[in-house]
């Protein structure tokens, strides 16, 4: 990736604490500033991902989230506030992010990822962070990420547990390798604390930062699982499926199914 302008004095002052991180430095900061990340939905997960990326100095966010703020958002969706109840989530989130980082460029899309917009939204970004609650949306982003060769950070939660992994098309398992079929038992509404979604949101943001800046060892081919009941963390090796309908040989020859 060719890097743009040198860091400004304002940027150096804002990011001085992270510029000192070994292996990151000015070059890593410039990579972040020159990068674009798609965050699908800005709920308990995506809101924290977007906020952490904005704080870290990501250059551009492509944000997709439909609907208005409702009371049940407020236990975990940290970009949403009480005074925005009944108003569009995407506008509330955009305002909050720009309060934190006015240099941030945002493409705000007031709808969720769907068949009609998935290809374009993924094309707008260098990295995708999948925070959607429905597997239909998640599989759409996975399909487009594989088609377009874009890394995608996958994060998810349930009750006090969470998962995160980072997909690199052609190198690691994709979402359809992990879940070859639409999980029939998954429900849109499920129990969770905001502190759990926020925890995995921070980890997912860190994965995106690492991928963009070439820092550390992202969770390529590994699924990090943690349970905040016991604070047990483990990372397991995950496997590609040769017959995967999206990234396998069959998926690559024809139009992959979503």
């Amino acid at each position: 990736m060719s890097l743009g302008e040198p860091l400004s004095a304002e940027e150096r002052a804002t990011y001085e604490w992270q510029l000192d991180v070994p292996g990151f430095g000015v070059e890593g900061q410039r990579r972040l500033r020159d990068a674009s990340v798609l965050v699908s939905r800005l709920g308990g997960l995506g809101g924290v991902v977007a906020y952490e990326l904005a704080a870290a100095g990501i250059g551009r966010l492509v944000l997709a989230h439909g609907g208005d703020v409702v009371p049940s958002d407020l236990n975990r969706q940290l970009l949403m506030t009480h005074e925005w109840l009944g108003k569009p989530r995407i506008e509330c989130a955009t305002a909050r992010l720009l309060e934190l980082n006015p240099r941030l460029r945002i493409e705000a899309v007031g709808e969720n990822v769907c068949e009609r917009n998935a290809e374009r939204l993924v094309a707008e970004a260098d990295v995708i962070v999948d925070c959607a609650p429905l597997f239909e949306e998640r599989f759409l982003m996975n399909r487009e990420a594989v088609r377009q060769g874009k890394p995608m950070v996958e994060c998810a939660m349930y009750e006090l547990e969470a998962h995160v992994t980072t997909i690199v098309p052609g190198q690691t398992p994709c979402l359809a390798c992990l879940f070859p079929s639409d999980p029939p038992a998954w429900r849109r509404r499920f129990p969770v604390f905001g502190a759990v979604s926020g925890s995995v949101g921070c980890l997912a943001a860190m994965e995106a930062i690492k991928v963009i800046a070439g820092l550390g060892e992202p969770l390529f081919g590994r699924l990090l699982c943690f349970d905040t009941r016991s604070m047990a963390f483990h990372a397991a090796t995950i496997r590609r499926r040769e017959d995967c309908r999206v990234c396998g040989e069959a998926g690559q020859k024809g139009a992959p199914a979503s």
Partner: peptide
């Protein structure tokens, strides 16, 4: 052996 079912965001 650890068994887990699919989870998502929200």
């Amino acid at each position: 052996v650890i068994i887990t079912t699919p989870i998502a965001g929200g």
